[in-house]
Amino acid sequence: MWSAKHRRKSQDGWRKYEYDIKQKHNLFNLDSLYRKISNKPFIKEKKQELEILMMYFWLHEIEGDEENYWEEYLSKALSF
């Protein structure tokens, strides 16, 4: 489940809401997911990498990157 703060009204006629990927906190409800899987050795201390992977998949396989947001997101994510 995504936080209501991460929803925004859709500009499309067929969807009422869309996911706001430009939120800065808890993208894709990653905090909850990470708590469940953080004990796995291959994921331990890799929360940022998991978020980057999920964002890539979201933009390139699910939603589409019409706004060319991937480059902007990646530069912000890697600057931390």
Rank of each mutant, 00 (worst) to 15 (best):
W14V: 00
K16Q: 06
I21F: 07
L27G: 08
E72Y: 15
D20G: 07
S79E: 13
K40E: 01
D31P: 01
M54R: 08
K44C: 04
K9W: 06
W70T: 01
L30K: 03
K47D: 10
D31T: 07
K76Y: 15
L50G: 12
D20R: 05
L53E: 11
G64I: 00
N39I: 01
Y17C: 07
M55L: 15
L27T: 06
D12F: 04
D65S: 07
Y56P: 06
Q23C: 11
W14S: 02
L27M: 11
W58Y: 15
H6K: 06
S3C: 06
M54Y: 13
N39W: 02
Y17M: 04
H60Y: 05
M54H: 11
P41M: 01
Q48Y: 04
S32T: 11
L53S: 13
R15N: 07
E45I: 03
E61Y: 04
K36T: 03
F28T: 06
I37N: 01
Y19H: 05
N68W: 10
K44F: 13
Y69L: 15
I37K: 02
L33V: 05
E18K: 08
F57H: 14
K47P: 12
W58T: 03
G13Q: 12
S3M: 01
M54G: 11
Y56F: 07
R8M: 15
Q23D: 08
D20E: 11
N29E: 07
K16G: 03
K46I: 05
D31I: 04
W14T: 05
G13T: 10
S3P: 05
I21K: 12
R15G: 02
E72R: 15
Y19F: 12
Y69G: 09
S79G: 05
N26V: 01
H6W: 09
E18I: 04
E61P: 00
H60M: 09
W70V: 09
G64R: 02
W58H: 11
F80A: 09
M54I: 14
D12H: 05
R35C: 11
Y69M: 08
N26G: 07
Y73E: 00
Q48H: 11
F28S: 08
G64S: 10
L27I: 10
N29R: 02
D65W: 09
W58S: 03
E67P: 01
Y56G: 10
Y34P: 00
E61N: 09
Y17F: 13
Q23E: 09
E45C: 09
H6N: 06
D31S: 04
L50P: 04
D65I: 03
E67C: 05
Q23P: 03
L30R: 02
E72K: 15
I21D: 13
S79T: 11
D20A: 13
N68E: 14
P41N: 00
L33T: 03
S3W: 02
I21V: 05
M55F: 09
E72Q: 15
N29D: 12
F57D: 13
S75V: 01
H60W: 04
N68A: 10
E63N: 15
K44N: 04
